[in-house]
Design a protein around this nucleic acid. Structure first.
Lengths: 341, 341
DNA sequence: CTGAAAGCGCTTACAG
DNA sequence: CTGAAAGCGCTTACAG
């Protein structure tokens, strides 16, 4: 019942040529007459021949698959990035393997090893690094070995991995956002943030602190509630903030997912947005503009970041890691306004 | 500069055993003394040895990667499904390749071929099929050949692919939804739907038609606006509906993404929900409960569906395709209410 | 252009 | 248990 698929040798036989000629015809490389190439391809098509990637790669052909590691595909930030990678990958005839890391260094290491085992052409890692560099030392070592062996690595938002990197404009974005809230007149601002062990959170907060300082405010004097970097986390953070600081006029969530939770919690408590409390997010995920009120946020070009990081990964290695800054833009919608006189 | 990775032969040499023994030690198969196995693994660890999957698979080892095809990873329905597949896959030590089909039969065929070329253990396809079976004939043929060669295939929501299938409860879900709207007293209901060439749309609509018929209504007498199966599509459909039928009391979108667009469009036109118009979705994507108003919808267990379809794909082939129905539940939230007296 | 042959890095019968 | 050897399905120098 299990019937073998046609192999290259079968195609070659059927076409009456050597396996070498058939190989050249199928891989589209030079050194075959057009006539033979055409014949081989026709025969292959008729036989339903599909080259075995394992054999091809093992024999020295370049790998056609790339590995992508994300925190969690269901997090819209990563969904968008993955979309960009998949789009450009398909366009380049590349296959993409995706794995979850769950922001767990051990899981990340396991996933990296799996990609190494698959001898992928390049490994792309998206997602915040850890402020504590020691945590990611094993992964870094594995990636270095992979690169030493000719593999390529490119990352999004990981500063210290010794690889080409696309760097989201977290610091400047944080600053823009805080400036916006300050310009509206807010002073009693609370922050709903993910784990400060993440560089993403640390960087965004640093930018915010900078803007606050320019306005004579100290971030340390303001409520910063650390929670899960999710909708549920935003919801919980909001209750904590309102319970302890009922007089806040704005809540800045450090990503849109949290902001969605903030909006829901405020609604549940009957607090009007932006009438009583302004709310802002970060990332500008696709649904942000559809929320009610439409979310003021900092836009990061996530899908493009996905394409850019793959572009970097496809370039030959350079003597020193490349860095590409993303830029950002403040998107003011309906969820922020001046505080009530 | 490019330094070779350690091969199994290098490990074997360093451990002072044959390559066969080393292979057995590393793959965890039987036929090696514990002492040797332990030594080999220690040496391998020290050398940073990571087995080459291509060589392993080519030599006859079972493939450890599975292929997943989705319409578009950014569509939350597929995001959830992919999450389920990735989660179970990681747990089983499997690697997952993901590709976009964009609901384009040609792209789907290309992606299937790529997975076949990679000799994946199983191919999982999520996403609506086409009412016109002819459209997917080439893909079906390719999948049959793949299965004939010992590959496994499992699908979500594709009836006619001759493979194990997880079948979303589209028909019954549609009926539940329509019954809910009818029970509230709605009669002038409009539908914002994706392409009717998709079985998903056809099935949901059929269930709806059935419920309407029981209430003495004919779906053909009601406005059904076909648009892109997206937020933007929902927005456009809403404008079309309100322009042509300003007296509707409810708009049922056939997925949550469209419903999100419907809500936004109604807001833009100053129509209150559910005061003037009730709105419902389908799927219960994670953000649905966070919307304002929180969305009434039909819940499909998407993440579980992802796990289930992978489970099916990992089982040995059966004589005839297995089918697994998902069930559904109506989730009534704040976006539906009785029409205004 | 064309083809015979070596080799990629493993696994798995087959002997011992 | 242990190892020598064949073979998986390709690609790529190397000759012709």
């Amino acid at each position: 019942m299990t019937q073998r698929r046609a192999r290259l040798i079968d195609v070659a036989d059927a076409a009456g040529v050597s396996i070498a000629a058939a190989s050249r015809a199928m891989s589209g490389s030079t050194g075959v007459s057009d006539a033979i190439a055409a014949r081989v391809r026709r025969v292959a098509g008729e036989m339903g021949y599909v080259a075995n990637v394992h054999a091809r790669t093992l024999a020295g052909g370049a790998s056609t698959t790339i590995g992508l590691l994300v925190h969690e595909i269901g997090d819209p930030y990563f969904t968008e990035i993955a979309g960009g990678v998949l789009r450009l990958g398909a366009q380049q005839g590349l296959t993409v393997q995706i794995g979850h890391t769950g922001r767990d260094p051990d899981a990340e290491l396991t996933q990296v090893r799996a990609l190494v085992a698959n001898r992928v052409r390049a490994i792309v890692i998206a997602g915040s690094g850890f402020v504590d560099a020691a945590v990611q030392a094993p992964v870094k070592a594995e990636l270095q070995a992979f690169q030493a062996g000719g593999g390529r690595v490119a990352v999004i938002g990981r500063h210290h991995l010794g690889a080409d990197a696309v760097l989201p404009d977290n610091h400047a974005g944080g600053r823009s956002l805080a400036e916006h809230l300050l310009a509206l007149g807010h002073r009693r601002i609370a922050f709903a943030v993910g784990s400060r062990a993440l560089t993403t959170v640390a960087d965004r907060l640093a930018g915010i602190a900078e803007a606050l300082a320019s306005a004579g405010l100290d971030l340390d004097d303001l409520p910063v509630v650390e929670e899960e970097f999710t909708r549920a986390g935003g919801r919980r953070a909001t209750h904590a903030i309102l319970d302890a600081h009922p007089d806040v006029t704005a809540i800045a969530a450090l990503n849109d997912d949290m902001a969605i939770g903030v909006l829901a919690a405020l609604r549940a408590r009957g607090v009007s947005v932006p009438g009583e409390v302004s709310v802002s997010g970060f990332d500008d995920v696709p649904v942000a503009e559809y929320l009610w009120p439409a979310l003021t946020t900092v836009r990061l070009p996530m899908a493009e970041m996905g394409e850019q990081v793959l572009e970097l990964a496809l370039k030959p290695a350079s003597s020193r890691p490349r860095r590409r800054l993303t830029g950002h833009s403040l998107v003011v919608r309906d969820s922020t306004a001046a505080p009530r006189g």
